[in-house]
């Protein structure tokens, strides 16, 4: 059968197609994750006009620039505090923070834990590629011990963050981890998380063949995907403590925490305080607390 070329994609409507091609390297995982995000948003049946996507700096930070939605590409590490202000001002919007590991838990780590503690109503999609890709592959707070990067030429001496554990300890009410290989489950998780409220974290393990894989015996994107295929174990509600990523050991993925029911968000508390003083004299546009069915079809 002859190869067919198509000049459009079914989810083009969510993209600023005039900005394509994107800047990501061949073999990079961000494109798949972006696709899963759009699929998840579609499954969740939320109005894209009501979804605001905020990022910081880095390869993943470039995601919002391709979305045909209202999007913000902020400074390095500061997507979360920007989103905190935005969401407080417009509690009726879905505010999604879509950024990388270096941005969210290294330079921006303090904002991450405090937004989790406060239960700010944000959906955080954290793409973890284990290194600083855009700047040439330096070590980060997620780089596995012993891994070679451009600033750890003799192997990483540090111990990485276990992101699900960090998020859970800081108070995140929804914590999941998937990979760029598990796109359907990731999309499902994103859809589910859209219908939760509070500080929700979805860590997505991705592949960065150009600056990380090639220095760590996984030179092609497919090599890292194979690593995920062979080592990931789906285990819902596992103890996040066990989610540490150690080369040579199994990687736990799945949904760790989902305790959003009945937990008030900071936004609800702050606006309820206003309501206490002003009653109905002020109209507060909270987004509707839609509940997602446990199983989203598809």
């Amino acid at each position: 059968m002859p190869m067919e070329f198509v000049d459009h994609h079914i989810r083009d409507k969510y993209l600023k197609v005039d900005r394509l091609p994107h800047i990501w390297c061949p073999g990079c995982g961000i494109g798949s994750i972006l696709n899963a995000f759009l699929l998840g948003m579609e499954k969740a049946e939320v109005d894209p006009d009501q979804v605001i996507v905020v990022s910081g700096i880095g390869c993943t930070g470039r995601v919002p620039g391709y979305l045909n939605m209202d999007t913000f590409h902020t400074t390095h590490g500061r997507a979360i505090p920007f989103a905190v202000g935005l969401k407080l001002a417009r509690p009726d919007m879905h505010v999604v923070v879509f950024s990388g590991d270096g941005d969210l838990v290294t330079i921006g780590g303090n904002h991450f834990i405090h937004a989790a503690r406060r239960n700010n109503d944000l959906l955080v999609i954290l793409v973890n590629n284990f290194n600083y890709g855009m700047t040439g592959g330096q070590v980060g707070a997620t780089t596995p011990t012993g891994a070679i990067t451009t600033t750890t030429p003799y192997g990483n001496l540090e111990r990485p963050f276990n992101i699900p554990y960090l998020a859970a300890a800081a108070g995140a009410v929804y914590v999941a981890r998937w990979t760029s290989l598990h796109v359907r489950r990731l999309a499902w998780s994103i859809a589910e998380a859209f219908h939760r409220k509070g500080f929700r974290v979805i860590e997505v393990l991705s592949q960065c063949p150009t600056t990380f894989g090639r220095r760590n015996k996984m030179p092609e994107g497919i090599d890292m995907l194979r690593w995920y295929r062979d080592n990931c174990v789906i285990q819902h509600y596992a103890d996040p403590k066990d989610a540490e990523i150690v080369p040579g050991r199994k990687i736990i993925i799945g949904k760790f925490i989902d305790i959003t029911d009945g937990v008030e968000t900071f936004e609800e508390k702050a606006w309820n305080l206003v309501r206490k003083f002003l009653g109905d004299r002020i109209e507060i546009p909270f987004r509707k607390g839609l509940r997602c069915p446990k199983e989203i079809p598809g």
Binding site: V54, P81, A83, G85
Partner: peptide, 25 residues
């Protein structure tokens, strides 16, 4: 009818007001 938030540091504070300003406040 306004919102006050004490942030974790001054960087968070200014970024939050930039976000809120885009949110229309």
């Amino acid at each position: 009818g306004g919102i006050f938030i004490q942030m974790e540091d001054e960087i968070g504070s200014i970024m939050a007001i930039i976000g809120a300003s885009w949110g229309g406040l």
